[in-house]
Write a protein that binds this DNA or RNA. Structure first.
Lengths: 229, 229
DNA sequence: GAATAAAAAAATATCTACATTTTTTTATTA
DNA sequence: TAATAAAAAAATGTAGATATTTTTTTATTC
């Protein structure tokens, strides 16, 4: 049924690599993205690179000034606060809708993803640990909000998520390798799922908003420690 | 203080024209956007056109399939419902935050924009009437949600707005030229502002959600009438 | 003869290399 | 030092070459 994914063109792979590198912090916030450097790094012509940059401008990960090229979007404590605040409120809203609209398989899917997340232990390699935990954590949160059944709200959430990714990455590094932090997260998730399954909208949304805001102070410190702000 | 707007390059003006044409319905939903036609229509080379299309893909107004070019994003009754539902809930949330966070000048600005909107009468030309009323109507609604003071929520709202524009344009044509419809809108706006100034969050949000959903049946009919769905 | 499959042709999308314009840097002069 | 001019670097744009998809034509099978 599904179309066999067409072989991506160079612009698409340039887009993926560039986005990944920006999120991972390969380029510093505000850094100028020289066409010549990008061409060399990804071994592509200017066309594909330019198209990739155009799309990233649309996602606000890159800024452009006509005739003066492109830069990685800046990071700031102010933006950190605003993104996380916006996300917390948006996901609170989506959870409220999900509790009103979600059915049995919605609940079941949340439990399934919670279980999978709790089982991330057998991994040894540090990088792999980070990737696996992050992927499952994302899947868990996605399962919760997916219950709102609105493709457009889900899309809007994803765009906020993408913009938060650079900040989230700092938090992940602090969290994934601390057993205490992971345990705290486990407890928050359990309490959240508890309220959701009880269909207690008020309590669930409050816990969701709190849960989403906990990384902020940690990230703020990491930003300072790395001299980003 | 403000930078003198740099002269836009061809990609930027291609982007603006293309976006405008898509919103205004120059291209049918789902229509293939031939590179050769676009080049001819806007009198540009492939480079700038491709960059503009890439950005529109990021805004979900255009879809792309690798090696098979670009198409105008489809329109459907389902999407109409979802966009308006998502917007109603999002703007309800933003209004709630605005009532909690907005100060005196927020209230004053809403009143100012309401007044300006009420004064759209001296225009005779039909097209100009539509443009002026729409611009002031937008300004009014923007003034309301701006009180939430979150740049990211405002940006997310704008992206939903852009995606709704094609549907909104159908509604505008039905509304702006009907004195009865305009009068109904005037009353809804007055009731909304009333609840906002009373800082009655619950009532204001309810009225906002209702107000934002009223166009849906009208647009649905217009979609059918024009054979779009 | 109708339906299917294979091959060729046309249309289209994509990419690169080069030319042009603009901005930034460096050097020069008052 | 400030202003100007020259040089270098960078961004932008165009045209043509290449690769892919779609359509048309031709051949084959039932």
């Amino acid at each position: 049924m599904t179309q066999p994914a067409p072989r991506p063109n160079l612009a698409i792979s340039a887009y993926r690599q560039l986005k990944r590198d920006i999120i991972r912090g390969v380029y510093a916030p505000g850094e100028k993205l020289l066409m010549s450097r990008l061409k060399a790094r990804y071994d592509l012509g200017v066309g594909p690179v330019r198209e990739a940059l155009s799309q990233l401008v649309g996602e606000h990960l890159v800024t452009a000034v006509s005739q003066r090229g492109y830069r990685v979007a800046a990071m700031s404590e102010q933006e950190l606060n605003d993104i996380y605040d916006a996300r917390a409120h948006l996901e609170g809203l989506m959870l409220e809708l999900a509790i009103a609209r979600g059915g049995d398989e919605w609940e079941a899917d949340i439990l399934a993803k919670l279980h999978t997340l709790a089982k991330v232990v057998e991994v040894h390699n540090a990088d792999e640990m980070l990737d696996v935990w992050d992927a499952r954590h994302k899947a868990f949160h996605h399962a919760i909000v997916a219950g709102c059944q609105s493709p457009h709200l889900l899309r809007v959430r994803e765009s906020l998520f993408d913009q938060a990714e650079r900040y989230r990455h700092l938090w992940l590094c602090e969290t994934v390798f601390s057993e205490a932090a992971l345990e705290a997260k486990r407890r928050e998730h359990a309490a959240l799922v508890d309220a959701i399954l009880a269909r207690d909208s008020e309590r669930a949304c409050e816990r969701m908003r709190e849960h989403l805001m906990t990384p902020v102070p940690i990230i703020r410190e990491a930003l300072v420690a790395r001299g980003i702000v």
